[in-house]
Design a protein around this nucleic acid. Structure first.
Lengths: 170, 170
DNA sequence: ATTGACAGTTCTAAAATAGAACTTAATGTC
DNA sequence: GACATTAAGTTCTATTTTAGAACTGTCAAT
Protein backbone atom coordinates (compact mmCIF):
# COMPACT_ATOMS: atom_id res chain seq x y z
CA UNK A 1 0.00 0.00 0.00
CA UNK A 2 1.20 3.48 -0.83
CA UNK A 3 0.99 6.47 1.52
CA UNK A 4 -1.24 8.25 -0.95
CA UNK A 5 -3.74 5.41 -0.84
CA UNK A 6 -3.92 5.79 2.91
CA UNK A 7 -5.02 9.42 2.66
CA UNK A 8 -7.96 8.44 0.50
CA UNK A 9 -9.34 5.66 2.67
CA UNK A 10 -12.77 6.13 4.17
CA UNK A 11 -11.33 5.89 7.66
CA UNK A 12 -10.37 8.76 9.93
CA UNK A 13 -7.66 6.68 11.53
CA UNK A 14 -6.05 5.78 8.19
CA UNK A 15 -6.13 9.41 7.06
CA UNK A 16 -4.51 10.58 10.25
CA UNK A 17 -1.92 7.83 10.00
CA UNK A 18 -1.11 9.18 6.53
CA UNK A 19 -0.07 12.41 8.25
CA UNK A 20 1.61 11.29 11.46
CA UNK A 21 1.97 7.51 11.20
CA UNK A 22 5.66 7.17 10.61
CA UNK A 23 8.63 6.83 12.85
CA UNK A 24 9.75 10.44 12.66
CA UNK A 25 6.68 12.63 12.34
CA UNK A 26 5.51 12.01 15.88
CA UNK A 27 8.98 12.71 17.25
CA UNK A 28 9.17 15.92 15.25
CA UNK A 29 5.80 16.95 16.64
CA UNK A 30 6.96 16.18 20.16
CA UNK A 31 9.76 18.67 19.61
CA UNK A 32 7.29 21.21 18.24
CA UNK A 33 5.28 20.98 21.46
CA UNK A 34 8.56 21.46 23.33
CA UNK A 35 9.04 24.75 21.42
CA UNK A 36 11.63 23.54 18.94
CA UNK A 37 11.13 25.44 15.68
CA UNK A 38 14.31 25.47 13.60
CA UNK A 39 15.81 22.99 11.19
CA UNK A 40 19.12 22.54 12.94
CA UNK A 41 17.48 22.35 16.35
CA UNK A 42 15.20 19.53 15.19
CA UNK A 43 18.20 17.82 13.66
CA UNK A 44 20.38 18.18 16.74
CA UNK A 45 17.78 17.09 19.25
CA UNK A 46 16.43 14.14 17.25
CA UNK A 47 19.49 12.83 15.43
CA UNK A 48 17.34 12.46 12.33
CA UNK A 49 19.16 12.67 9.01
CA UNK A 50 18.87 16.08 7.41
CA UNK A 51 17.40 14.55 4.31
CA UNK A 52 14.51 12.94 6.12
CA UNK A 53 13.94 15.96 8.32
CA UNK A 54 13.55 18.20 5.28
CA UNK A 55 11.19 15.66 3.80
CA UNK A 56 9.02 15.30 6.91
CA UNK A 57 8.82 19.03 7.57
CA UNK A 58 7.70 19.52 3.98
CA UNK A 59 5.01 16.89 4.46
CA UNK A 60 3.77 18.38 7.72
CA UNK A 61 3.58 21.81 6.09
CA UNK A 62 1.74 20.33 3.10
CA UNK A 63 -0.86 18.84 5.44
CA UNK A 64 -1.28 22.13 7.27
CA UNK A 65 0.07 20.84 10.58
CA UNK A 66 3.07 23.19 10.55
CA UNK A 67 3.55 26.60 8.99
CA UNK A 68 6.80 28.20 7.86
CA UNK A 69 7.24 31.72 9.10
CA UNK A 70 10.28 33.87 8.34
CA UNK A 71 12.35 35.02 11.30
CA UNK A 72 15.11 36.79 9.36
CA UNK A 73 15.54 38.16 5.87
CA UNK A 74 19.15 37.91 4.82
CA UNK A 75 19.50 35.09 4.26
CA UNK A 76 15.85 34.06 4.34
CA UNK A 77 15.32 31.76 7.30
CA UNK A 78 12.14 30.13 8.47
CA UNK A 79 10.76 28.65 11.64
CA UNK A 80 8.30 25.82 11.69
CA UNK A 81 5.42 26.43 14.06
CA UNK A 82 2.27 24.50 14.82
CA UNK A 83 -0.94 25.68 13.20
CA UNK A 84 -4.26 25.22 15.00
CA UNK A 85 -4.59 21.93 13.14
CA UNK A 86 -1.21 20.99 14.56
CA UNK A 87 -2.07 22.13 18.08
CA UNK A 88 -5.16 19.93 17.85
CA UNK A 89 -2.80 16.94 17.76
CA UNK A 90 -2.14 17.51 21.45
CA UNK A 91 -4.57 14.85 22.70
CA UNK A 92 -2.86 12.30 20.46
CA UNK A 93 0.58 13.25 21.75
CA UNK A 94 -0.61 13.24 25.36
CA UNK A 95 -2.36 9.90 25.13
CA UNK A 96 0.76 8.38 23.57
CA UNK A 97 2.91 9.84 26.34
CA UNK A 98 0.47 8.61 28.97
CA UNK A 99 0.46 5.06 27.63
CA UNK A 100 4.24 5.11 27.68
CA UNK A 101 4.15 6.40 31.25
CA UNK A 102 1.96 3.51 32.33
CA UNK A 103 3.41 0.68 30.27
CA UNK A 104 6.92 1.52 29.15
CA UNK A 105 8.76 3.25 32.00
CA UNK A 106 11.77 1.63 33.63
CA UNK A 107 12.60 1.57 37.33
CA UNK A 108 13.69 5.19 37.30
CA UNK A 109 10.16 6.39 36.69
CA UNK A 110 8.66 8.91 34.33
CA UNK A 111 10.94 11.04 32.19
CA UNK A 112 8.48 13.93 32.33
CA UNK A 113 5.72 15.27 34.50
CA UNK A 114 2.86 17.46 33.38
CA UNK A 115 1.37 20.27 35.40
CA UNK A 116 -2.00 21.83 34.64
CA UNK A 117 -1.82 25.63 34.81
CA UNK A 118 -5.51 25.72 35.67
CA UNK A 119 -5.38 23.72 38.88
CA UNK A 120 -1.60 23.74 39.46
CA UNK A 121 -1.53 19.99 39.99
CA UNK A 122 0.50 17.28 38.30
CA UNK A 123 -1.98 15.36 36.22
CA UNK A 124 -2.61 12.50 33.81
CA UNK A 125 -4.81 12.92 30.77
CA UNK A 126 -8.18 11.16 30.92
CA UNK A 127 -10.38 10.55 27.91
CA UNK A 128 -14.06 11.12 28.59
CA UNK A 129 -17.35 11.10 26.68
CA UNK A 130 -18.29 14.53 25.33
CA UNK A 131 -21.94 13.86 26.22
CA UNK A 132 -21.93 12.37 29.70
CA UNK A 133 -18.40 13.09 30.86
CA UNK A 134 -17.67 9.51 31.94
CA UNK A 135 -14.24 8.00 31.22
CA UNK A 136 -14.19 5.93 28.04
CA UNK A 137 -13.05 2.40 27.38
CA UNK A 138 -13.24 0.24 24.26
CA UNK A 139 -15.89 -2.06 25.69
CA UNK A 140 -18.31 0.77 26.36
CA UNK A 141 -18.46 1.97 22.80
CA UNK A 142 -20.63 0.89 19.87
CA UNK A 143 -19.38 1.64 16.38
CA UNK A 144 -21.79 2.63 13.59
CA UNK A 145 -21.21 3.45 9.93
CA UNK A 146 -21.38 7.22 9.35
CA UNK A 147 -22.34 9.20 6.24
CA UNK A 148 -18.81 8.85 4.81
CA UNK A 149 -18.71 5.06 5.22
CA UNK A 150 -18.36 2.60 2.36
CA UNK A 151 -20.17 -0.70 2.20
CA UNK A 152 -19.32 -2.90 5.16
CA UNK A 153 -16.70 -5.53 4.55
CA UNK A 154 -17.51 -9.26 4.64
CA UNK A 155 -14.41 -9.84 6.74
CA UNK A 156 -15.74 -7.65 9.53
CA UNK A 157 -19.19 -9.21 9.37
CA UNK A 158 -17.60 -12.66 9.66
CA UNK A 159 -15.46 -11.55 12.59
CA UNK A 160 -18.51 -10.07 14.34
CA UNK A 161 -20.33 -13.39 13.97
CA UNK A 162 -17.45 -15.36 15.43
CA UNK A 163 -17.12 -12.79 18.19
CA UNK A 164 -20.68 -13.38 19.40
CA UNK A 165 -20.13 -17.04 20.16
CA UNK A 166 -16.37 -16.98 20.69
CA UNK A 167 -14.06 -16.17 23.54
CA UNK A 168 -14.60 -12.78 25.12
CA UNK A 169 -11.99 -10.23 24.20
CA UNK A 170 -9.46 -9.14 26.84
CA UNK B 1 18.24 5.78 14.17
CA UNK B 2 17.34 2.17 14.83
CA UNK B 3 14.02 1.04 16.30
CA UNK B 4 15.84 -0.51 19.22
CA UNK B 5 17.37 2.82 20.12
CA UNK B 6 13.90 4.32 20.28
CA UNK B 7 12.76 1.84 22.93
CA UNK B 8 15.58 2.88 25.21
CA UNK B 9 15.09 6.62 25.03
CA UNK B 10 14.13 8.40 28.25
CA UNK B 11 10.89 9.58 26.68
CA UNK B 12 7.49 7.98 27.02
CA UNK B 13 6.50 9.16 23.58
CA UNK B 14 9.57 7.67 21.91
CA UNK B 15 9.05 4.36 23.70
CA UNK B 16 5.45 4.19 22.63
CA UNK B 17 6.40 5.11 19.08
CA UNK B 18 8.77 2.14 19.15
CA UNK B 19 5.68 -0.04 19.63
CA UNK B 20 3.02 1.58 17.47
CA UNK B 21 4.82 4.24 15.44
CA UNK B 22 4.82 2.69 12.00
CA UNK B 23 2.46 2.71 9.10
CA UNK B 24 0.92 -0.68 9.77
CA UNK B 25 0.81 -1.22 13.53
CA UNK B 26 -1.87 1.37 14.10
CA UNK B 27 -3.99 -0.02 11.27
CA UNK B 28 -3.60 -3.52 12.68
CA UNK B 29 -4.70 -2.24 16.08
CA UNK B 30 -7.71 -0.54 14.52
CA UNK B 31 -8.75 -3.93 13.20
CA UNK B 32 -8.20 -5.48 16.62
CA UNK B 33 -10.61 -2.98 18.14
CA UNK B 34 -13.06 -3.91 15.37
CA UNK B 35 -12.83 -7.55 16.53
CA UNK B 36 -10.56 -8.86 13.80
CA UNK B 37 -8.40 -11.60 15.27
CA UNK B 38 -7.11 -13.95 12.57
CA UNK B 39 -4.17 -13.73 10.24
CA UNK B 40 -6.08 -14.03 6.99
CA UNK B 41 -8.76 -11.61 8.19
CA UNK B 42 -6.15 -8.97 8.98
CA UNK B 43 -4.57 -9.60 5.62
CA UNK B 44 -7.83 -9.40 3.68
CA UNK B 45 -9.15 -6.29 5.38
CA UNK B 46 -5.88 -4.34 5.32
CA UNK B 47 -4.24 -5.45 2.10
CA UNK B 48 -0.94 -5.66 3.99
CA UNK B 49 1.60 -8.11 2.63
CA UNK B 50 1.62 -11.38 4.53
CA UNK B 51 5.28 -10.97 5.28
CA UNK B 52 4.84 -7.65 7.02
CA UNK B 53 1.71 -8.76 8.80
CA UNK B 54 3.52 -11.73 10.32
CA UNK B 55 6.32 -9.41 11.34
CA UNK B 56 4.09 -6.77 12.94
CA UNK B 57 1.95 -9.30 14.80
CA UNK B 58 5.10 -10.85 16.20
CA UNK B 59 6.26 -7.43 17.34
CA UNK B 60 2.95 -6.56 18.98
CA UNK B 61 2.98 -9.90 20.79
CA UNK B 62 6.56 -9.33 21.89
CA UNK B 63 5.57 -5.98 23.40
CA UNK B 64 2.60 -7.54 25.19
CA UNK B 65 -0.02 -5.61 23.25
CA UNK B 66 -1.49 -8.72 21.66
CA UNK B 67 -1.65 -12.30 22.88
CA UNK B 68 -1.88 -15.47 20.79
CA UNK B 69 -4.55 -17.85 21.95
CA UNK B 70 -5.30 -21.18 20.25
CA UNK B 71 -8.76 -21.63 18.78
CA UNK B 72 -8.21 -25.09 17.28
CA UNK B 73 -5.72 -27.89 17.75
CA UNK B 74 -5.24 -29.76 14.49
CA UNK B 75 -3.65 -27.98 12.88
CA UNK B 76 -2.68 -25.53 15.61
CA UNK B 77 -4.27 -22.16 14.87
CA UNK B 78 -4.13 -18.99 16.89
CA UNK B 79 -6.11 -15.80 17.26
CA UNK B 80 -4.51 -12.51 18.16
CA UNK B 81 -6.38 -10.67 20.88
CA UNK B 82 -5.72 -7.47 22.75
CA UNK B 83 -4.23 -7.74 26.22
CA UNK B 84 -5.07 -5.16 28.87
CA UNK B 85 -1.96 -3.30 27.76
CA UNK B 86 -3.40 -3.36 24.25
CA UNK B 87 -6.86 -2.27 25.37
CA UNK B 88 -5.20 0.65 27.11
CA UNK B 89 -4.24 1.94 23.67
CA UNK B 90 -7.88 2.90 23.15
CA UNK B 91 -7.44 6.58 24.01
CA UNK B 92 -4.65 6.82 21.44
CA UNK B 93 -6.77 5.21 18.76
CA UNK B 94 -9.78 7.35 19.62
CA UNK B 95 -7.85 10.61 19.65
CA UNK B 96 -6.34 9.75 16.28
CA UNK B 97 -9.79 8.96 14.89
CA UNK B 98 -11.17 12.16 16.36
CA UNK B 99 -8.47 14.33 14.82
CA UNK B 100 -9.18 12.70 11.47
CA UNK B 101 -12.89 13.36 11.97
CA UNK B 102 -12.22 17.03 12.54
CA UNK B 103 -9.44 17.68 10.06
CA UNK B 104 -9.39 15.01 7.37
CA UNK B 105 -12.99 14.17 6.39
CA UNK B 106 -14.22 14.91 2.90
CA UNK B 107 -17.64 16.29 1.93
CA UNK B 108 -19.35 12.98 2.63
CA UNK B 109 -18.72 13.29 6.34
CA UNK B 110 -17.44 10.88 8.94
CA UNK B 111 -16.85 7.27 7.99
CA UNK B 112 -17.77 6.11 11.49
CA UNK B 113 -19.82 7.24 14.45
CA UNK B 114 -19.28 6.23 18.05
CA UNK B 115 -22.03 5.60 20.54
CA UNK B 116 -21.46 5.46 24.30
CA UNK B 117 -23.26 2.50 25.85
CA UNK B 118 -23.45 4.39 29.13
CA UNK B 119 -25.46 7.37 27.95
CA UNK B 120 -26.61 6.00 24.57
CA UNK B 121 -25.50 9.14 22.77
CA UNK B 122 -23.18 9.62 19.81
CA UNK B 123 -20.09 11.24 21.25
CA UNK B 124 -16.63 12.64 20.62
CA UNK B 125 -13.73 11.86 22.93
CA UNK B 126 -12.53 14.73 25.09
CA UNK B 127 -9.23 14.79 26.93
CA UNK B 128 -9.47 16.22 30.42
CA UNK B 129 -7.22 16.77 33.43
CA UNK B 130 -7.32 13.88 35.91
CA UNK B 131 -7.20 16.38 38.80
CA UNK B 132 -9.67 19.13 37.93
CA UNK B 133 -11.60 17.57 35.06
CA UNK B 134 -11.15 20.54 32.75
CA UNK B 135 -10.44 19.94 29.03
CA UNK B 136 -6.73 20.07 28.21
CA UNK B 137 -4.83 22.05 25.61
CA UNK B 138 -1.11 22.40 24.95
CA UNK B 139 -0.94 25.97 26.17
CA UNK B 140 -2.35 25.11 29.58
CA UNK B 141 0.33 22.60 30.46
CA UNK B 142 3.75 23.03 32.04
CA UNK B 143 6.33 20.32 31.46
CA UNK B 144 8.79 19.31 34.19
CA UNK B 145 11.58 16.76 34.23
CA UNK B 146 10.53 13.62 36.12
CA UNK B 147 12.60 11.06 38.05
CA UNK B 148 13.42 9.19 34.81
CA UNK B 149 14.68 12.30 32.99
CA UNK B 150 18.19 12.75 31.70
CA UNK B 151 20.08 16.01 31.81
CA UNK B 152 18.26 18.71 29.90
CA UNK B 153 19.47 19.37 26.39
CA UNK B 154 21.11 22.66 25.40
CA UNK B 155 18.96 22.74 22.27
CA UNK B 156 15.77 22.86 24.32
CA UNK B 157 17.16 25.47 26.67
CA UNK B 158 18.10 27.63 23.69
CA UNK B 159 14.64 27.20 22.15
CA UNK B 160 13.02 28.14 25.46
CA UNK B 161 15.08 31.33 25.57
CA UNK B 162 14.09 32.33 22.06
CA UNK B 163 10.48 31.43 22.85
CA UNK B 164 10.31 33.95 25.68
CA UNK B 165 11.03 36.94 23.49
CA UNK B 166 9.94 35.53 20.13
CA UNK B 167 6.67 35.16 18.28
CA UNK B 168 3.93 33.46 20.24
CA UNK B 169 3.23 29.92 19.13
CA UNK B 170 0.01 29.21 17.22
C1' DA C 1 40.38 35.87 3.70
C1' DT C 2 38.62 32.68 6.78
C1' DT C 3 35.45 30.77 9.84
C1' DG C 4 31.01 29.68 11.34
C1' DA C 5 25.77 29.41 11.40
C1' DC C 6 21.87 27.93 9.00
C1' DA C 7 18.93 25.38 5.83
C1' DG C 8 18.95 22.62 2.99
C1' DT C 9 20.60 19.05 -1.32
C1' DT C 10 23.23 15.23 -3.20
C1' DC C 11 25.46 10.92 -3.00
C1' DT C 12 26.01 5.75 -1.98
C1' DA C 13 25.10 1.82 0.92
C1' DA C 14 21.97 -0.51 3.85
C1' DA C 15 17.37 -1.65 5.35
C1' DA C 16 12.43 -2.06 4.81
C1' DT C 17 8.45 -2.93 1.89
C1' DA C 18 5.57 -4.65 -2.08
C1' DG C 19 3.87 -8.38 -4.63
C1' DA C 20 3.70 -12.85 -5.82
C1' DA C 21 4.59 -17.67 -5.27
C1' DC C 22 5.53 -21.44 -2.25
C1' DT C 23 5.11 -24.53 2.19
C1' DT C 24 2.93 -27.26 5.75
C1' DA C 25 -0.82 -29.53 7.96
C1' DA C 26 -5.17 -30.97 8.24
C1' DT C 27 -10.21 -31.32 6.20
C1' DG C 28 -13.66 -32.06 2.92
C1' DT C 29 -15.10 -33.75 -1.83
C1' DC C 30 -15.20 -36.76 -5.95
C1' DG D 1 -6.80 -42.39 -3.10
C1' DA D 2 -6.38 -37.95 -5.76
C1' DC D 3 -7.48 -33.29 -5.54
C1' DA D 4 -9.04 -28.84 -4.01
C1' DT D 5 -9.57 -25.81 0.15
C1' DT D 6 -8.50 -23.31 4.49
C1' DA D 7 -5.25 -21.24 7.47
C1' DA D 8 -0.98 -19.34 8.82
C1' DG D 9 2.78 -18.47 7.69
C1' DT D 10 7.79 -18.35 4.76
C1' DT D 11 10.62 -17.42 0.75
C1' DC D 12 11.87 -14.95 -3.25
C1' DT D 13 13.05 -10.78 -6.22
C1' DA D 14 12.28 -5.92 -7.37
C1' DT D 15 11.36 -1.47 -5.65
C1' DT D 16 11.23 2.13 -2.24
C1' DT D 17 12.91 4.24 2.03
C1' DT D 18 16.24 5.35 5.18
C1' DA D 19 20.99 6.04 7.14
C1' DG D 20 25.20 8.42 7.10
C1' DA D 21 28.18 11.45 5.41
C1' DA D 22 29.68 15.07 2.48
C1' DC D 23 28.56 19.08 -0.16
C1' DT D 24 26.23 23.84 -1.53
C1' DG D 25 24.75 28.60 -1.08
C1' DT D 26 23.98 32.87 1.81
C1' DC D 27 25.13 35.83 4.85
C1' DA D 28 27.56 37.67 9.37
C1' DA D 29 31.45 38.08 12.32
C1' DT D 30 36.66 37.94 13.15
Amino acid sequence: MKWDALEEEPCSLARTVAVIGDRWSLLILRECFLRIRRFDDFQASLGITRHLLADRLKKLVRFGVLRKIPYQDAPKRYEYILTQKGLDLYPIIMSIVHWGNIHMVDSRGRPMLHQHKNCQKMFDPVMVCSECGEPLSAKEVHVHPGPGARKSSPVHARAQERGKRGVEQG
